[in-house]
């Protein structure tokens, strides 16, 4: 059984007025990293929001199963507690809430939802120091409000840091490479690769092949007009880089 199984997924925005996903099928087995590539407007970000349950992104047909459970009706926080994690393309600024406080409250909320004990303050500090070191994130940054005044690269590092602390079962990386220079891309990729594990899977959503040089996928899918129109091995990403999306846009 695949970890994530999406079948015939239809989804709309604007109260069902605007269909974006039109019969999408995808399965991602445990331990694998899959990439979804596609032109702008093909529905990649919508897919990430539908999977994580954002209000306003309505599943109108089809099914999303995570570890055998239909999660289509679950609240975003319930999906998070089951281990679904979205690294945002544009991480949100939350003035007045220190990053450290935010991550600790999120971790403990998830643990509580899973009937696990809360992490004590000293244990949390040990944990976050260890993970922050992997991503070159300073304690000074962690004391600042969530993402406020951070550069694009710093925001993406914070997304991956949160993933390292929350240890989700399944990561969705939405355009994680956007806005990153080559050094930041390397640091972020190292963080992501540290999360690779036989018990975890990932969906890497990207417009460009560049990120896949650092996070090598097991499978590559091409998305166009709300569906997966081609799937293949890592060589498919190279082909897209060389030839562009034209033939898939036409095929859709």
């Amino acid at each position: 059984m695949p970890m994530l199984e999406i079948s015939n997924l239809h989804a709309s925005v604007d109260n069902g007025e605007k269909p974006i996903l039109k019969g999408l099928d995808l399965s991602v087995p445990k331990g694998e990293v899959h990439a979804i590539m596609g032109p702008n407007g093909s529905g990649k970000s919508t897919l990430s929001y539908v999977l994580t349950g954002r209000d306003g992104y309505d599943l109108t047909d089809g099914k999303v199963s995570f570890e055998g459970e239909d999660i289509g009706e679950l609240e975003p926080e319930e999906r998070a507690a089951r281990g679904l994690y979205l690294s945002f393309q544009y991480p949100v600024e939350i003035p007045g809430v220190p990053t450290l406080t935010f991550i600790r409250e999120a971790l403990n909320a998830q643990r509580k939802a899973r009937s696990e004990d809360e992490v004590s303050a000293p244990d949390f500090m040990r944990l976050i120091r260890e993970k922050a070191a992997i991503l070159n994130v300073s304690m000074d940054m962690l004391k600042r409000p969530v993402n406020v005044g951070f550069s694009g690269g710093e925001k993406k590092r914070m997304e991956i840091l949160q993933a390292l602390v929350l240890e989700p079962r399944f990561l969705i990386l939405d355009e994680t490479d956007s806005g990153l220079d080559i050094d930041a891309l390397k640091v972020v990729s190292e963080g992501v690769n540290a999360l690779r594990s036989p018990d975890r899977a990932m969906l890497v959503i990207t417009h460009y092949q560049r990120l896949l040089d650092y996070i090598a996928p097991d499978r590559v899918h091409v998305m166009s007009a709300g569906r997966i129109v081609a799937s293949g091995g890592p060589e498919l990403a190279k082909e897209l880089e060389a030839e562009g999306y034209d033939k898939y846009v036409r095929a859709a």
């Binding site: 998070a80 939350i94 007045g96 935010f102 999120a106 909320a109 939802a113 949160q162």
Partner: peptide, 21 residues
């Protein structure tokens, strides 16, 4: 949504946002 995606229940996320405001 960002806070709920990280696992915070809606009521708690709202309270944190209002408090910080």
């Amino acid at each position: 949504f960002y806070m709920r995606q990280r696992g915070l229940p809606e009521a708690q996320a709202r309270a944190i946002l209002i408090r910080s405001f």
